[in-house]
């Protein structure tokens, strides 16, 4: 369980190059491009889940997020014969529209909802030839399981503070090894998914600044949520919420960054309600 202290901001597409070079200078580190698939799961509505436990305490139902790394090669459609060195932060810049060369079906294969071909050995060969990005190729890729609480309340918070439980799912066994069946075992079903691509910078004191573009990939359409810009997320994870000294220090590190970028990019604390992943009661 970690405390994540964060600040958010936004950036338009045209400012990407300038921001990347600014952050490279500020951090002294080159930008790191990344891409990931995020799937969000909700408690199965088919079950009658009691709102209270045996002690008559309210039980909050929370969404679970499963994330898995995607190769950068999946972000471009023309990747034949290109060396891995080509996949730099410039690849992110080219992604401005709604379209992204990742198909809904491929993503469904990731979570194992769409049946694959019967023979796994044969399929590996097939997929290498037909589709460069096949879910099967990433079966060994671990899933990151995340449950997040709503950020801490308070009017004069200078940074957003959120409790996050995180775990890594390395492998799973059983007759049906898909992630859907595992989540089904926990009483959870798939709700929606999105793809995040962007760059991140590692700064001192564990500070990470991420530029993200997010696509909502649904069965019928692909839509870029962050159209025309980038979501900026600056965050630091602190191991224990009780480590007040560390928390205060971390907060000041974030505020320093905010001050440094002031007038250029304004980092702010978002409305905590927008970061609430609980189911709520209707």
């Amino acid at each position: 369980m970690v405390q994540q202290l964060s600040l958010y901001g936004s950036l338009d597409d045209a400012s990407y190059d300038l921001f990347v070079s600014t952050m490279t200078t500020v951090s002294g580190n080159p930008p790191i491009a990344f891409a990931k698939l995020s799937t969000v799961w909700i408690p199965n509505p088919a079950f009658q889940i009691e709102g209270v436990n045996t002690k008559n305490q309210l039980v909050e139902q929370t969404r679970i997020k499963l994330e898995r790394k995607l190769p950068l090669s999946s972000l471009t459609s023309d990747d034949d014969g290109k060396s891995p060195a080509k996949y730099t932060h410039s690849i992110v810049k080219s992604l401005v529209g709604d379209d992204i060369p990742i198909e809904y079906k491929q993503l469904k294969q990731h979570i194992g909802e769409l049946p694959r071909k019967a023979d796994p050995d044969a399929m590996d060969v097939d997929s290498e030839e037909s589709k460069p990005v096949s879910a099967a190729a990433f079966d060994d890729e671990p899933w990151c399981v995340t449950i997040a609480d709503i950020p801490a309340a308070g009017n004069n918070r200078k940074v957003s503070m959120q409790t996050i439980n995180e775990s890594v799912l390395m492998s799973h066994v059983g007759p049906d090894t898909s992630i859907t069946s595992i989540m089904g075992g926990l009483g959870y079903v798939f709700q929606y998914q999105y793809i995040t691509a962007g760059v991140k910078f590692n700064l001192k004191h564990g500070l990470v600044v991420e530029l993200q573009k997010i696509w909502n990939v649904s069965e019928s359409s692909k839509k870029q949520v962050t159209k025309g810009g980038f979501l900026i997320k600056a965050f630091i994870n602190v191991g224990k919420a009780t480590d007040i000294e560390r928390m205060n220090f971390t907060e000041s590190v974030l505020l320093n960054l905010q001050k440094e970028l002031q007038g250029y990019v304004d980092l702010a604390v978002p409305d905590r309600k927008s970061m609430d992943s609980r189911m709520g009661f209707e």
Partner: peptide, 14 residues
Amino acid sequence: SAFVVEDILNFVYR
């Protein structure tokens, strides 16, 4: 800014 940060977070979290 091309969008409101909260709108994005609403999608990411819910």
